[in-house]
Write a protein that binds this DNA or RNA. Structure first.
Lengths: 375, 375
DNA sequence: GATATTTGTTGCTGTCAGCAACATATGATG
DNA sequence: CATCATATGTTGCTGACAGCAACAAATATC
């Protein structure tokens, strides 16, 4: 039987179409034709494939006020492909089931025992997911992640834990494990304000300080960035990591993750001690940022987790100490902002990482009609 | 006239074939078939195209000792496509004309007056290049480069100089301008020891300290990294950039760029002052590296320019101060080495950047036979 | 209601890559 | 040395694909 040669081209175009719908939301066929640079008739054929396979839905176009026949509106069918995203935190586990196009189909949350190990957390995740059918599953974990293994997580108290294996044995399926900051960076980049920024640095305040990036318009895969352990004060405070003078130690991040709200409120109400603490932390943050900005030259920095609150209360201190540690040419291009998606960032991004893998698979194979006509 | 639809597929495959030959050197058709995952007959057709257009040359295969008909050997014809790479330094200008497959067809070097402006340097480059026909032209410049503009170069004494425009008016062709460290990083990654390392950081010691990267297996485009201005000693030595405590100021890099050889030799011969100077510089370098490693988590760091000599003389100091400023989990994966291509790195990499653009153009169009059969 | 404009649909065409059968070139076996 | 096994290049054929042109459909404008 002749393997259908140029069919790869069709798969590429088909998944490009679906990918665009997933990322940019409902669009007309005319817009898709323009955007993908293909012929009207080709778009028609691709849309017909995707419609038959149930991935998209077409609705007759509404008059736009312009002359001519209104173009058909195309949109993703959320249920056609779903991704499970799980976020592990110190005392709770959160789940989102996200459908094609980014629609959140389900949200759930359960408490977990502080100090629970990977197997226990995986079990809780399995219970939460129950027997939901999803195309892909991603877990976001705070700490240093390498492949499926959590090399080090002070928040969870794990070290060299193969959490991917834990999840696989608890749920019977393959999971991808990423760190929370990388997930959130992807989330903010794909569905937040920072849509399409070429070089984005996302800083996450959890029990520690971590970072995720987008470099040259691609979310960085590789492993995660433990930003909290940049040394800003050599020979300073002893850090729990064993080094001295880490930003994390100097800022006292562990406390912040619990007390950020009261501290910033107190500072705003005029409490001198709180105000001083916020200012000092902002200064150290600015110093660490200086090194990172010099080393990576991003277009934009987003503050997420409790860094969001801290930045809102100490922007001036952050900026002034950043100014002492970065070249003016780099500062000029740089924007500092708080993350738009807030606490939803990590789950949103984790789901998006899952969809990226799904689109990649669609680019490699196509099951829909071939299943029914084998031989 | 019907635009030949699926022809894009052919262009993609053809340029993938040529790209592989360019990067990996001569290969047999059988190896290419295996590597590209295409059919024997398809490889034959592509090779025939490229042979007709003069890009490749096929020679009858030599017996390998294994059974079966020996496979035809395919190799690039260097003269079929050439790239001009120019490296601008404080007192000299270097040129290399590189052919397809990485063969260096010509090398040249002329002195330039210290303090010469962009127009003068461009004129010298035009004279050096003479009327050589090249497919692409790249200039590597020490400093902070943004697009075709040199935002800041202390070595050349330029600021906001549109060197791309200077070159264009002097030579009548478009140039791409990149910074020396980025070029060298690409060179080491594509043709040096660090071939294929996913996350590579190349540090260049010139008048200043700059860096270039490969992230997730792709050379980072974007703008350059002024590593020398990472602040390692807040409130320390005043740096010429206006900040205080930059590594560059603490290390005294400006002196090193002239005196590195005598200093390291003196240190090795037992000169206490030189030895102490080398040790201290190594320590500060390690501190800056700590911040960079924490922020970027590379697999490998290469030392180029005079950092090569410094590292060879102070590896212990670099490693020990790096150990005080980086998490052990990150250090464990990290390799430190000197750059393999040495002084040739920047030119090699600049040429490679040109070839990348050339391959991209081939992917978009194909001129050879269409020129002769228009209509 | 007629015309201009834009879009979806249909049948046709040039091109492509895989395949199978055959030709070619080597090593292994007796 | 002849034959067989093995690996590779070549040729004609095939299923598939995307572009195109002509036509049909749906809207705005006058």
């Amino acid at each position: 039987m002749a393997r259908p040669a140029t069919e790869e081209l069709r798969r590429r175009n088909r998944s490009a179409l679906l990918d665009r719908l997933h990322r940019r939301g409902p669009q007309t066929r005319a817009e898709l034709t323009e955007a993908l640079g293909l012929n009207r008739s080709t778009i028609g054929a691709l849309a017909s494939d995707l419609s038959e396979s149930g991935h998209i839905q077409e609705t007759t176009g509404r008059p736009t006020g312009a002359a001519g026949r209104p173009s058909t509106l195309v949109e993703c069918v959320p249920e056609a492909a779903t991704v499970a995203a799980v976020e592990v935190r110190w005392k709770r586990l959160r789940l989102a089931v996200v459908g094609l196009g980014g629609t959140v189909l389900r949200r759930d949350e359960v408490p977990i025992a502080p100090g629970a190990d990977g197997a226990a957390v995986a079990k809780a995740a399995a219970a939460l997911l129950a027997d939901a059918e999803v195309s892909d599953a991603i877990a976001a974990v705070p700490g240093l992640v390498d492949g499926g293994t959590v090399a080090q997580s002070s928040e969870l108290g794990w070290a060299d834990r193969d959490f991917g294996a834990d999840l696989e044995s608890a749920t019977g399926r393959v999971w991808r494990v990423v760190d929370v900051a990388t997930a959130a960076a992807v989330g903010e980049w794909s569905r937040g304000d920072a849509h399409g920024v070429a070089n984005l640095l996302y800083l996450h305040g959890g029990h520690g300080l971590t970072a995720g990036w987008v470099v040259d318009g691609r979310p960085r895969r590789g492993s995660s960035i433990m930003l909290g352990h940049i040394v800003v004060n050599p020979g300073g405070q002893r850090c729990r990591c064993g080094l001295s003078g880490c930003v994390e130690a100097e800022m006292g991040t562990f406390d912040f993750s619990e007390t950020i709200d009261e501290t910033t409120i107190a500072a705003r109400l005029g409490d001198t001690a709180a105000r001083e603490m916020v200012r000092r932390s902002g200064e150290f943050l600015g110093l660490a940022l200086g090194a990172v900005v010099t080393a990576t030259n991003p277009d934009e920095i987003l503050f997420g987790g409790w860094l969001r609150e801290l930045y809102l209360s100490s922007a001036a201190a952050v900026r002034s100490s950043l100014a002492e540690a970065t070249l003016p040419q780099l500062r000029a291009r740089l924007r500092l902002r708080t993350a738009a998606l807030g606490a939803q960032g990590p789950l949103t991004g984790a789901a998006e990482i899952g969809f990226e893998a799904l689109m990649e698979r669609m680019r490699l194979m196509w099951l829909a009609r071939q299943d029914s006509n084998l031989e």
